[in-house]
Design a protein around this nucleic acid. Structure first.
Length: 419
RNA sequence: GAGCCUGUAGCUCAGUUGGUUAGAGCGCCAGGUUGUGGCCCUGGAGGCCGUGGGUUCAAAUCCCAUCAGGCUCCCCA
């Protein structure tokens, strides 16, 4: 295959006609469900200040330490956003959205960027949708966020998923737990994988998430954070679980679930699909009560989720879920000769004004080629215009499915098709 | 960052132990139907066999390098 002069960058893909329709369907469902849950859309810039992401997401995370597309221009440090919770929190603080009163229920859809090695379900530019409830610390908020996420998957038809939840604690319980965990791990340190050894000092909680074979027996017997929660946080977790049960949202507790972003506190959750392969997380989220203060706002509790659209599409394909029908065209005008073509270009607007989708041949193809083209475009009707029709003022209207034709004045055709 | 796999037509892929002008299906264009789509028939266009080098009388085929892509580990959406 001859190499084209230009191609997309590694891990970035074009979404072509024929695929875009599925995105429209997904986006429509997301908008509709978000509206039902009384969430408002927010759109933030693709580029943020690097420092916002570094502080918000956490210096030690993989995302910040090695996956950012960052550059500088003049004095300013830019980064292509790798996720959208920190940007939404920034917008909340910057525009004093708390002054609108109550909680802010916000959702977003858009591209995110992480400089990882691409594989199935992982691209460098990928798309997420997500939602945040800012200003509520009640378990009802945690549960409504999860309910919104689940409701979107349910609408799409993806139901064989597993919701995993955990509580990653608040700073106080985490301090107690971290000490207990390190006390437990210290005698086993030499047996741990290299990467886990590196995490021992700066991020021991992440060792729990390890998928390294040699770590498994050690991790399996490690103390779990849920045994070290402060009373308040333990109660919060208990109430989240109770509410989920009442809503018939099934879940499994995973005491080793630790999400890769630093800002999570208390509730953490992840939605797993068996249809995805290696990258099996459809979406995830949790509570981040410290983030807004961290980036310069007032202490404000918040909870949210983010989910990947590409992974959703993979799951749909695996499950044979059809997201979009083929586009239909209402009318295709087939023309014979120069005069007919100029008649057609002048009459297309009237069809379109009547709310019909309408097109024609621009390149003087044969009638046969035009009919073929009309068929390819899924035209419901064809109007045939030639010398005879122009002189008689009656045009052939062909119903493509029924293969029936009538000759009518244009106004009658318009009326017929608008009916 | 590490491992494994794959590069032949627009797409999906054949291509025997190296051996004439490199094939199929689908798609595209045209004709069969001097003004009618789908089905059918016929024809046509379209390939530096990813790129560079080597072995050989001879390379899509063997060897080396390189580039690109896919999958996996790590991590995440």
């Amino acid at each position: 295959m001859a190499q084209p002069t230009f191609s997309t960058h590694l891990g970035m893909v074009d979404i072509l006609p024929g695929e875009v329709e599925q995105w429209h369907t997904l986006e429509r469902i997301i908008h509709e469900e978000a509206k039902k849950f009384n969430f408002e859309e927010i759109r933030t810039p693709i580029l943020e200040q690097t420092e916002l992401i570094a502080r918000g997401v956490g210096q030690l995370t993989d995302i910040v330490s090695k996956e950012m597309f960052a550059f500088e221009r003049g004095e300013d440090q830019y980064v292509l956003r790798p996720e959208c919770t920190a940007p939404v929190a920034r917008a909340y603080v910057e525009h004093h959205l708390d002054q609108r009163g109550g909680t802010q229920n916000l959702y977003y859809i858009g591209p995110m960027f992480r400089a990882e090695k691409p594989q199935k379900g992982r691209q460098r530019q990928f798309h997420q949708f997500g939602a945040e409830i800012i200003g509520a610390q009640d378990p009802a908020a945690d549960v409504d966020i999860i309910a919104l996420m689940m409701s979107i998957y349910d609408r799409i038809g993806i139901r064989n998923t597993t919701l995993k939840i955990n509580s990653v604690g608040d700073p106080e319980s985490r301090k107690i737990y971290t000490k207990a965990l390190k006390d437990y791990l210290r005698p086993h340190l030499a047996e741990l994988s290299e990467i886990s050894q590196k995490r021992f000092e700066n991020n021991p909680l992440r060792i729990l998430d390890s998928k390294e074979q040699e770590d498994q027996p050690i991790v399996d017997n490690a103390p779990v954070i849920t045994d070290f929660l402060t009373d308040e946080t333990a109660d919060h977790y208990k109430r989240v679980k109770a509410l989920l049960r009442e809503l018939n949202i099934s879940f499994v507790e995973d005491p080793h679930l630790v999400r890769g972003l630093d800002y999570y506190t208390r509730t953490a959750f992840e939605l797993i699909s068996p249809d995805l392969g290696a990258q099996d997380a459809l979406g995830g989220g949790g509570r981040y009560d410290l983030l807004i203060e961290e980036i310069g706002g007032q202490p404000t509790p918040a909870v949210g989720f983010a989910a990947g659209i590409e992974r959703l599409l993979i799951a749909c394909e695996e499950l044979d879920i059809k997201l979009a029908e083929e586009d239909m065209l209402d009318v295709y005008i087939v023309t014979l000769g120069e005069k007919a073509r100029s008649w057609a270009i002048k009459h297309l607007p009237r069809l379109r004004e009547a709310g019909l989708s309408a097109s024609m041949d621009y390149i003087g193809r044969s009638i046969k080629a035009q009919m073929k083209d009309a068929d390819r475009e899924n035209a419901r009707h064809v109007i045939i215009v030639g010398e005879n029709e122009l002189s008689e003022g009656k045009f052939v209207l062909r119903d493509m499915k029924a293969s029936e034709e009538v000759a009518l004045p244009f106004d009658d055709i318009l009326e017929e098709l608008s009916a």
